[in-house]
Design a protein around this nucleic acid. Structure first.
Length: 790
RNA sequence: AGGGAUAUGGUGUAAUGGCAGCACAACAGAUUUUGGAUCUGUUUGUCCAGGUUCGAAUCCUGGUAUCCCUGCCA
């Protein structure tokens, strides 16, 4: 986990002793399967705890019986364990604590912090008001404690129908934060809970239950996504009213979505239910179980999760980052073998007798990168590179890839052509002497000659012996959607031409309603291509979960569901990068271009220089302040802000006023509004005087101002006490400059070889070394002289 | 419209007043018995307008854009 704003908070909390250790939790609701979107959140929760030597919990957040099940709970656990997580005894079910939540609810009632409301849902929504109008109390808001307690107990006892009453927090109906307008804490809902059965007919709401559960578990840092920012106010209110100490705190991070992927549970369900995929584990799905079946390893998923950063903005990650993580993992894991996916027969006319070749499993670069000098056999055993080979028969009858022979090759084609040569991987060079085609012109047979050593060829192709290779089905997966953002509008999208051979297309057109099925129209009709071909015989004895690189094709493994011993099915985990396809596409690509979006186009020109309109009273203040010497801009800012106005009221009039006003606006405004400024404006005049007379640099003055604001000490006294007005003579400055240069020889060299931007770096170092006492004007002169002299 | 959050290359993320860096992508070259991998290099960026400062991605003011909130879901 790279450093981020949450690790920063944790380090501060640990350093200050706020918590003895870190405790986090990942709280999925067991009403669906985990998908790639969850890996980010779970990784953040778990890995952060690991990183700080803390604990992480898995919490099944099962407070809404609808849709939740043990099957989902177990699926979630299995997927997380597959990812390599071990929460030890840190497994919690929210439903195990229903009784405790209930107790806290009664406590809130007794404290007058919660009440039973008895209006309908519609009425409650109406009374809540909207963004412009504050909420109005329902007629039940002022019920007494005893009545509330009685009603709430009877709610639990099942005396009332669903929806007849709710328990609400009594917070603030007028709050601009809608979440605070007396949120519902409990509702009556007669539903069978997969763990609690029918023990309860009231269930707690997220806003009530989640903070309590965090506190009960002893969680310290409770991470959730950005849409819960407003809910934090309830979280803090609850912690305060129920006096938890030490208490957990909620921090929000931005979600990460992935290009070409949807993660909405409802839409995923539509894909399964509509038969657009074969199930939740269809290798094209973004669910973890699907990625698992695809053959992606947990290490790759974790690498991906660690590579996408953490921030407070919702972002969409480039699919290439995921693909890179998958390839990078497989490159060092998957032995190389050969398979022909779309075969064309080749006869080596001059090969009389079959040969057995020993071809290495690994390319030279993977061998060289091995840390112990050994490499793995498909079974996992690590052996010397020369032993990491398999037997491959070279026979008179072979198969090669249909794409690897061309009677009419495009420019730059490096494979087999009539009369041309190519190297058969590991077997030597052949020349195509002749070829046959069928009625439609498809090549059916190539007649070739195996050439002597010393022959030359421009390219290398893979192959398989017709007599020994194993027939197999290949499933070539591609992105499920044709567009990066299937849930968006995609006005530039061009629907693919109708192709009756592609399953899914017909359903797609009859199924596409105007509403939520819109994303279905972006389904990629070619997301699954099935071919029949041959894989070299050596794979027969390998473990069934071996991931291979089929050379020049991509990474594959045996489909764990559909593959049979006598009918193997190989699924493509991911393609190899294909520079040739790139150039091909570029050649044929119309100059239409992608139309890079220009920022200037998307951002309308801002109306600049617009000044907010001031009231006559504020205008009068502006005049008064400018008369006192303040700049127009500062005056306008101050006049509009009561806090700044009040602060500035006791500033001394005179020459120093303008400076004090400027500091007020530019340096103190934010602190002032937060009520964190301890110094008085009256104490600022002497500081401004020191600055005006050149006794201190502006840097020293601002530092002193900041410290004074925090401590309340008069800044001028502070400067006096620390001798910051002592000035800096030429000799001392020269000495410090020399010291700084000596400490940073690499930077000096870089500067002298032309990187003049480093002047700012040196200036900063010198300012720091002199505590700001050096005058920047002099520094630059001395510095340049010293650097040039060196 | 009220409240809240956010804004750095194509994408994601660093820089906490002092060198705009890293990863992925793209492009070029080297290398290569995988058009893979590897290595080297290159292109592209601080939302806009003002202000403070010797110096601003960072501080101040104003604006713009995007997202979230008005479930008895989580």
């Amino acid at each position: 986990m790279a450093p981020n704003f949450i690790t920063e908070i944790i380090e501060r909390d640990l350093a200050s002793g706020k918590y003895a250790g870190v405790v986090t939790r990942f709280p999925p609701e067991p009403n669906g399967y985990l998908h790639l979107g969850h890996t980010f959140a779970s990784f953040l929760d778990f890995q952060t705890a690991v990183q700080y030597g803390g604990r992480y919990h898995l919490r099944l957040d099962d407070t809404n019986p609808e849709g939740e099940s043990q099957e989902f709970a177990e699926g979630i656990m299995a997927d997380l364990r597959w990812m390599g997580w071990d929460w030890g005894d840190g497994l919690f079910y929210a439903s195990d604590n229903f009784e405790r939540y209930y107790g806290y609810a009664e406590q809130l009632i007794r404290q007058g912090d919660a009440y039973v409301d008895s209006v309908s849902g519609d009425e409650m929504a109406r009374l809540r008001g909207d963004a412009h109008t504050p909420g109005t109390p329902s007629e039940y808001r002022e019920r007494g404690v005893d009545e509330n307690l009685d009603l709430f107990r009877r709610m639990r006892a099942g005396d009332f129908a669903d929806g007849a009453h709710v328990l609400r927090g009594r917070i603030d109906l007028g709050s601009a934060n809608m979440k605070l307008r007396d949120p519902v804490l409990y509702r009556i809902k007669r539903a069978w809970h997969y763990r609690a059965g029918d023990a309860w007919c009231i269930y707690p709401m997220y806003d009530f239950q989640h903070p309590l559960q965090d506190a009960i578990e002893g969680v310290t840092h409770s991470m959730c996504s950005l849409e819960f920012v407003d809910n934090r106010a309830i979280y803090d209110w609850l912690m305060e009213r129920l006096a938890f100490a030490p208490r957990p705190h909620q921090y929000e991070f931005g979600r990460r979505s992935l290009e070409y992927t949807i993660v909405s549970k409802r839409k995923l369900r539509q894909l399964v239910a509509g038969g657009h995929v074969t199930g939740w584990d269809d290798p094209r799905m973004p669910t973890l179980r699907a990625q698992q079946r695809l053959g992606v390893t947990p290490e790759a998923v974790r690498a991906f999760a660690s590579q996408i950063g953490v921030s407070r903005t919702n972002r969409t990650v480039d699919i290439a980052v995921y693909e890179n993580a998958v390839r990078d993992d497989l490159n060092h894991r998957a032995p190389r073998v050969m398979a022909v996916l779309d075969p064309v027969r080749v006869t080596l006319e001059n090969l009389e007798e079959a040969r057995t070749l020993q071809i290495p499993y690994w390319p030279h670069d993977v061998i060289e990168a091995s840390s112990d000098g050994l490499v793995a056999l498909p079974g996992g055993e690590r052996v010397a590179p020369e032993q990491a080979v398999r037997d491959v028969p070279l026979t008179r009858e072979l198969f090669i890839e249909r794409e690897d022979f061309s009677a009419d090759p495009p420019r730059g084609y490096k494979r087999l052509t009539p009369g041309g040569t190519v190297r058969l991987r590991g077997a030597g060079i052949i020349r195509a002497d002749d070829f046959e085609t069928d009625d439609s012109g498809n090549v059916t047979h190539v007649h070739a000659t195996l050439l002597e050593d010393g022959a030359r060829a421009g390219g290398v192709i893979h192959w398989a012996s017709a007599a020994h290779a194993i027939p197999a089905e290949f499933r070539l997966y591609d992105r499920l959607f044709r567009v990066a953002n299937p849930e968006g509008q995609n006005p530039d999208d061009i629907a693919p031409e109708f192709d009756p051979e592609q399953p899914g297309h017909a359903e797609l057109s009859e199924d596409s309603g105007p509403l939520d099925t819109g994303f279905l129209r972006y389904l990629n009709p070619g997301s699954l291509r099935v071919t029949r071909g041959f894989v070299e015989g050596s794979v027969a004895n390998d473990p069934p979960d071996t991931r291979y690189q089929f050379e020049r094709q991509g990474y594959f493994w045996r489909d764990p569901v559909d593959s049979r011993g006598d009918a193997p099915v190989y699924g493509r985990i991911i393609t190899l990068k294909d520079a040739w396809a790139q150039t091909q596409k570029a050649e044929s690509g119309k100059p239409k271009g992608e139309g890079k979006k220009q920022k200037a186009e998307t951002t309308p020109v801002a109306v600049s220089g617009a000044q907010p309109v001031l009231t006559p009273g504020q205008e009068a203040e502006v005049t008064r302040l400018t008369d006192l010497g303040a700049s127009e801009g500062d005056a306008r800012t101050v006049a509009r802000d009561e806090t700044l106005l009040t602060f500035l009221a006791d500033a001394a009039p005179g020459d120093t006023f303008a400076q004090v006003a400027s500091w007020t606006v530019n340096d103190l405004a934010t602190l002032l509004r937060a009520g964190e400024v301890k110094v008085r404006a009256a104490d600022l005049a002497p500081l401004a005087g020191l600055l005006a007379f050149g006794k201190v640099t502006s840097r020293v003055a601002r530092d002193a101002l900041a410290r004074a604001a925090a401590s309340g000490e008069a800044p001028a006294a502070l400067i006096e006490r620390e001798g910051l007005n002592s000035g800096l003579d030429e000799a001392e400055l020269g000495r410090i400059v020399a010291e700084v240069l000596e400490k940073h020889p690499a930077e000096v060299e870089a500067y002298q070889s032309g990187k003049t931007a480093l002047l700012g770096f040196f200036t900063g170092q010198i300012m720091r070394a002199t505590k700001g006492k050096a005058e920047p004007g002099r520094v630059s002169g001395v510095l340049k002289a010293a650097l040039d002299a060196d």
